[in-house]
C-alpha cells in the first residue's frame, strides 16, 4: 500500500512519518524506549478482524509487551470488562497535552515518556494530536499502530486492510516473550 494519508484531505506535511515496513522494526523501537506508553482510542471497539474486536488484539499486545496503556474516551470500562486494567485513563487531549510537556514525569512519575504510541482514535483527531506533538514536542518520538498512514507521527504503518492490520498486531505481540 502507498504511504499517503488514509483520509485523502489530510494533506501531506513538510515532515512526514517514517514508514514501518515490518512490525519487527516497530518492536525494536519499542524495546529500545525507556518509558513508552500506549494511548488507545475509541475505535478499537468498532473494528473487527477475524471475529475479534481490535481491543482484544491490543490487550494481547499490552499483556505481552508490558507497555503501560492509557485508555481514552470511555475505553477504560471496555478494557476492564475484558479483564485488563489499563495503567490510566484520560481524555485524549488531556493525556496528549501532558506528553507534550517535557516536565511531565509520566504515569508513574519516573520519567517523561520517550515513545508515545497511539492506536484507535478517529483518524482525523489522531492526526491532529500527532501534529501537535510533532510541532510542540519535537524531541518526542511518536508511533501509531493503526492500519492507516499517519503523516504527522514519527513512525507509522502504511495504509493496510483490516486483515493485514490483524496480522501486524499478532506479529508485534509474538515478538515479546509470552506473546502468541
Amino acid at each position: 500500500m502507498s504511504c499517503e494519508p488514509w483520509q485523502c484531505a489530510e494533506i501531506a506535511a513538510t515532515k512526514k512519518a517514517n514508514v514501518i515496513q515490518k512490525p519487527e522494526i516497530a518492536v525494536a523501537m519499542m524495546k529500545r524506549a525507556q518509558h513508552p506508553i500506549l494511548i488507545v482510542g475509541s475505535n478499537v471497539t468498532e473494528r473487527w478482524m477475524d471475529g475479534k474486536q481490535a481491543i482484544e488484539y491490543i490487550i494481547e499486545f499490552a499483556n505481552a509487551s508490558k507497555i503501560p496503556v492509557v485508555a481514552t474516551a470511555h475505553m477504560v470500562g471496555e478494557f476492564v470488562k475484558r479483564g485488563y486494567t489499563p495503567a490510566a485513563y484520560w481524555n485524549a487531549m488531556e493525556i496528549s497535552q501532558r506528553v507534550c510537556d517535557p516536565t511531565w514525569m509520566g504515569l508513574d512519575g519516573k520519567g517523561h515518556p520517550d515513545l508515545v504510541i497511539y492506536v484507535g482514535m478517529p483518524y482525523y483527531m489522531e492526526a491532529l494530536i500527532l501534529s501537535g506533538l510533532k510541532h510542540f514536542a519535537p524531541d518526542l518520538k511518536t508511533m501509531t499502530l493503526d492500519n492507516m498512514y499517519h503523516v504527522h507521527a514519527s513512525w507509522s504503518f502504511p495504509n493496510a486492510s483490516l486483515e493485514e492490520w490483524a496480522a501486524n498486531l499478532k506479529v508485534l505481540t509474538s515478538k515479546y516473550s509470552g506473546g502468541q
Partner: peptide
C-alpha cells in the same frame, strides 16, 4: 494546546513558509 492542521503558512507571498517544530 495547539494541533496545527497544516505545517506551513501560505497567507502571504513571502511563503509558503515551513513552520515545523520551531
Amino acid at each position: 494546546f495547539y494541533m496545527p492542521d497544516c505545517d506551513s503558512c501560505c497567507l502571504c507571498t513571502f511563503g509558503k513558509c515551513d513552520l515545523t517544530a520551531g
